[in-house]
Amino acid sequence: MSDVSLTVNGKRVSGSTEDRTLLVHFLREHLGLTGTHVGCDTSQCGACVVHVDGRAVKSCTMLAVQASGSTIVTIEGLADGAELHPVQAAFKEHHGLQCGFCTPGMIMAATDMIARHPQGLDEATVRAELDGNICRCTGYHNIVKAILAASKTMSKGAKGKAKQAA
């Protein structure tokens, strides 16, 4: 057993857990954050993606104790209060989800992808960058559309902010 302290979605949390507990299970079972899902055993499907210290990682491939001391954002912490994050809004607007199971991981991966490509994204890049996220419902068509749209919205927003700053 080890003590685990994290900052999750802006809140300090701590708990004691077996060393073998995966981060995803700590989030789901100890913190009740069940938006993060487990869809495979081989670290491939990406349903479990969360942000750890600002980077999108697979929470099924990290021990909770390994993450101790880190800052974590999950799907539950992405929206700004009642206002959806632009990626969340784009998934809804463009029907980028059906059963919703892969969706939290998709959205967390997509926000990271957009952040890594401030210059914008094209379809081929989005598809390549989704290699670690599997969806069985949508055929990816509308997921790709949603990410491209969100990328546009966010780069506009960023430019707007930059202008204001200037």
């Binding site: 990406g46 991966a109 890594r116």
Partner: peptide
């Protein structure tokens, strides 16, 4: 290598 999340770790 792998995918973006794998490359981060």
């Amino acid at each position: 290598i792998g995918d973006p999340a794998v490359r981060y770790k």
